[in-house]
Deep mutational scan, measured.
Amino acid sequence: TTYKLIANGKTLKGETTTEAVDAETAERVFKEYAKKNGVDGEWTYDDATKTFTVTE
C-alpha cells in the first residue's frame, strides 16, 4: 500500500511517499524521515486517503 506524507515544517515543506504493509509501518518510516530532516511537529493521519501530515 502506498502512504503519503505531507510535511509542513519550518525547514522542510513538501510531499513524499512510501510503500508499507500497514499504516503503523508507514508512520515509523515517516517519523524517521522527519527526524532526519529536523521536522518535529503535530502529526495527523487520514485513513481514507492514506495520508500523514506533520505540521510545525
Results as ranks from 00 to 15, higher is better:
K50L: 07
Y3K: 01
W43K: 00
V39C: 11
G14D: 08
T1M: 11
E27P: 00
T55H: 08
E56F: 09
L12S: 06
D22G: 04
A48L: 12
R28H: 07
T51M: 04
D47F: 07
K13P: 09
D47K: 09
T51H: 02
E19H: 13
D40M: 12
T55F: 09
V39K: 02
R28F: 08
T49C: 04
Y45Q: 00
T51L: 04
T49K: 06
K13C: 15
A23N: 06
T49H: 05
T17G: 03
A7K: 04
G9S: 13
V21E: 12
Y33M: 06
K13S: 11
R28S: 08
T25C: 07
T16W: 15
T18S: 04
D47M: 09
T44V: 09
A7W: 15
T2M: 13
L12I: 10
A34S: 04
T1I: 14
L5G: 01
D46P: 00
T53I: 08
G38K: 07
K50H: 11
V29T: 11
Y3V: 01
A26F: 01
T53N: 04
T11D: 09
F30V: 01
V21Y: 12
T11K: 10
E56T: 07
G9M: 12
T49I: 06
I6Q: 05
A7I: 15
D47H: 10
I6W: 05
K13H: 11
V29R: 09
T1E: 11
A26W: 01
Y3Q: 01
D46H: 06
T2K: 12
Y45R: 02
T25P: 02
Y3F: 11
K13T: 10
Y3H: 02
A23Y: 14
A48G: 08
D47V: 09
T18E: 04
T18R: 05
A48E: 13
V29E: 07
Y45I: 01
T53M: 09
A7Y: 15
D40A: 11
V54M: 06
N37W: 15
L12R: 05
T17C: 12
G41W: 06
A20H: 03
D47G: 08
V54R: 01
K10S: 12
A23M: 13
E24R: 11
T25R: 06
T51I: 06
T44I: 08
R28I: 09
T53L: 06
R28W: 08
A34M: 10
D40G: 07
Y45M: 01
T25K: 06
V54N: 01
L12D: 05
E15M: 12
T16A: 11
F30M: 03
G38Q: 06
K31H: 08
T51A: 03
K35Y: 11
D47L: 06
E32W: 07
T25D: 08
G41Y: 03
V39S: 03
W43R: 00
G14A: 13
T53R: 08
D46K: 03
Y45H: 01
E15T: 14
V21T: 12
N37P: 01
V54W: 03
I6E: 04
E32P: 01
A7P: 03
K36G: 06
E24A: 14
L5I: 03
T2L: 14
G41H: 02
T49W: 04
G9V: 12
K4N: 05
L12W: 15
E32H: 08
E15Y: 13
G41A: 03
V21P: 15
A20I: 02
